[in-house]
Nucleic acid binder design. Structure first.
Length: 619
RNA sequence: GCUUCGAUAGCUCAGCCUGGUAGAGCGUUACCUUGGUAAGGUAAAGGUCGCGGGAUCGAAUCCCGCUCGAAGCUCCA
């Protein structure tokens, strides 16, 4: 929650002397003693997320109360100690200056910002002399509290549903064969989640030069090195291709929206305010936290008949932004800026929505498998209102039956969210943290909210039912899962690796002596022309060292080139997966790789093909 | 916000308890080595030990304050 905190005191006098600068960005002023009499002193703490709007209303409230007590002189006194969630000094200073300039008809003074000051004041003894105010940021005030209030009223009933459609009490279910499901159930139902070590993928993402924290940005905004960018691009492309195959139409929508747009204002009632805010030319904008609004606003402007439905709009949002609390940001698991494939399907009625919902359930499962993730690593949770369950038991039982293992059920007495049914796949990592990946929802509310209409069979306008699906979940989170899986392999004594289609380098060529370099280059070129990511270790290192380095980079195929290979058709190809050296021709290697990466997207090597030319990114 | 941990070479870290103005490995550079499936050798360059203060003849090391970072908690419709 964002507020500006103000302690207001009506004083006979105040005297203050700036002593020394407390922060670097303190104002440059002449540190002279200052005395004011018959003055209202407003101690002001500007908090995170405060904006011009807050400043305007704060000064409004102050001048209103000053009128009541008949005082016309105001001292704005920056006072950080009123809050624990301070805004940055530059924001705070500019907002306090803004308050000063907005105070029409008052004599306003301002104590210097960023200085330790000694002060003395005498407060008057009348009832209105002391007053504290908390100014909330505009729309968020009501929406946040309303959303949170309503949220706390939700009554959830937790169960386990087995593939035969039977519901079991969570407390009595035998989890002995379903350890991860037990973790998820505890995680969700009991909200118990205590861990004291960093997740293993954080080390791996740095070591493999995939991604890193960017200290110059906000927390949770990562930078991706060439390797990471390549992996991300490939996953993005894969998911996009699969959604288009299913029937989605790819669109692109803005990343920021006007909070005062009528559709947004009511949408905010459904969300606790946790977005980045941007002020521009008097507009209060926020960065999107999902692709929903963009696609809804687009669909609203479409002329649609029932014959056009289901209409599937898809966007891969780079980025969506959610200002999660700093403490909950860990590696790639949870970010403030993330890439989210988001596909909405507008359906003409519940029958069509259910049919579409089934399709997308299959799509999501297949995408997850395609990404190299095993369904055994996932636990499904399905959530619905009691009413929906009684009317649509068959659908729910069908989905659970299809998955073929018990799932966690959350049933709500009443509908609070915009959806009546939702499922998601959760990955449970080695530390017992559960993270959602794929998800789909049946939304019965936003068609109307966004005034999306279609003309039905009777030539009447109607609002569609909207499905919200992310077949893979956030791309960064997919990377997190792949790395966590690899870390688990490593811990259990297996070789960690990425799927071959995602490997930044698929084939490394190592010459025994520099004289074989040109042969190696030709080999690398030949492989590259066949759309294989191959590179050449041209450093002056021993063969042993070069192989070791290739191993630590998790490179699948290593080809050592010496006299033998230059003079024969066969190559010595080390396959990291089996740990054996194979005698193959280049063509045999190509078809082997093609077979394993069949149907997956390809991008060219995203680094110099000469290892010696690469900057060192991490140890 | 709370709890814990950390800040020393480009990177990863040791040294701190028991004070005597800096060490290793990796990386980089040069030279030697011409190698056959997980680390060839030698050498060089490279650091106001996060900032400020205190006690001490003397501080990376002890004490106090601060800043920044990380992880965990809270949170995660």
């Amino acid at each position: 929650m964002q507020t500006m905190r103000i302690l207001q005191l009506h004083c006979d006098y105040i005297e203050f002397t700036p002593i020394r600068k407390e922060i670097k960005s303190a104002e440059e002023i002449d540190p002279a003693k200052m005395r004011l009499e018959e003055v209202v002193v407003a101690f002001v703490a500007v908090e995170e997320g405060d904006n011009s709007d807050v400043a305007r209303r704060a000064i409004g409230e102050i001048s209103q109360s000053m009128q009541k007590i008949g005082c016309n002189r105001l001292l704005l006194y920056p006072y950080a100690h009123l809050s624990s969630k301070l805004a940055s000094p530059s924001t705070a200073l500019s907002l306090i200056k803004e308050m000063q300039s907005l105070a029409d008809g008052l004599e306003v003074h301002r104590a210097p910002f960023g200085w330790t000051k000694s002060y003395q004041l005498q407060v008057k003894g009348h009832p209105l002399a002391e007053n504290s105010k908390t100014i909330m940021a505009g729309d968020e005030k009501e929406s946040t509290s309303e959303a949170l209030k309503a949220e706390s009223k939700i009554q959830s009933y937790w169960h386990i549903m087995t593939p035969d459609g039977k519901m079991h009490d969570v407390g009595k279910f035998d989890f002995s064969k379903y350890k991860n499901l037990e973790v998820l159930a505890k995680y969700e139902a009991a909200k118990k989640r205590s861990v004291d070590e960093p997740p293993p993928h954080v080390k791996l993402m740095k070591k493999l030069a995939i991604a890193d924290y960017e200290p110059a940005s906000d927390a949770g905004n990562m930078r991706f090195f060439p390797n990471g960018r390549l992996i991300k691009s490939l996953i993005e492309r894969y998911v996009t291709e699969r959604v288009i195959e299913y029937g989605g139409f790819e669109v692109e929508t803005p990343i920021m929206y006007d909070s005062h747009h009528p559709s947004m204002e009511s949408y905010f009632n459904r969300f606790p305010a946790r977005q980045y805010n941007v002020n521009s030319e008097g507009k209060h904008l926020f960065l999107r936290f999902a692709a929903c609004f963009g696609q809804f606003l687009m669909a609203k402007d479409f002329h649609m008949s029932y014959k056009n439905l289901p209409l599937r709009l898809y966007e891969l949002t780079r980025y969506s932004f959610r200002r999660e609390q700093s403490g909950e940001l860990v590696g790639l698991r949870r970010l403030r800026a993330f890439t989210m494939p988001d596909c909405h399907a507008m359906c003409k009625d519940m029958e069509q929505a259910k049919e579409e919902f089934r399709k997308r359930f299959d799509l999501s499962r297949s995408v997850i498998r395609g990404l190299g993730l095993d369904e055994a690593d996932f636990e499904m949770a399905i959530r619905f209102t009691e009413e929906f369950y009684h009317e649509n038991k068959a659908l729910i039982e069908e989905l659970v039956g299809k998955l073929g293992k018990p799932v966690l059920v959350e049933m709500w007495k009443e509908r609070f969210f915009y959806f009546v049914l939702k499922w998601e796949f959760n990955y449970v990592d080695s530390l017992g943290k559960a993270s959602a990946l794929s998800t789909d929802q049946i939304d019965v509310e936003n068609g109307k909210r966004y005034n999306i209409e279609f003309i039905d069979e009777e030539n009447k306008p109607r609002f569609p039912i909207i499905l919200h699906n992310s077949p893979s979940g956030a791309i960064e989170r997919v990377m997190y899962v792949l790395l966590e899986k690899a870390a688990k392999d490593q811990k259990e004594g297996r070789k960690p690796s990425l799927p071959l289609w995602l490997a930044p380098t698929q084939v490394r060529v190592i010459p025994v002596r520099p004289e074989f370099m040109s042969f190696c280059e030709k080999l690398v070129d030949g492989l590259s022309q066949k759309d294989i990511r191959a590179d050449l270790d041209d450093r002056n290192e021993s063969v042993g060292k070069s192989i070791r380095d290739a191993e630590t980079e998790w490179i699948r195929y290593i080809i050592v080139i010496g006299d033998k290979e230059v003079n024969a058709a066969k190559l010595s190809i080390r396959d990291r997966k089996s740990g054996t050296v194979k005698e193959w021709t280049a063509d045999e290697l190509v078809s082997e790789i093609k077979m394993e990466t069949h149907g997956m997207p390809f991008f060219k090597l995203n680094m110099s093909r000469f290892v010696s030319k690469r900057p060192q990114i991490m140890v």
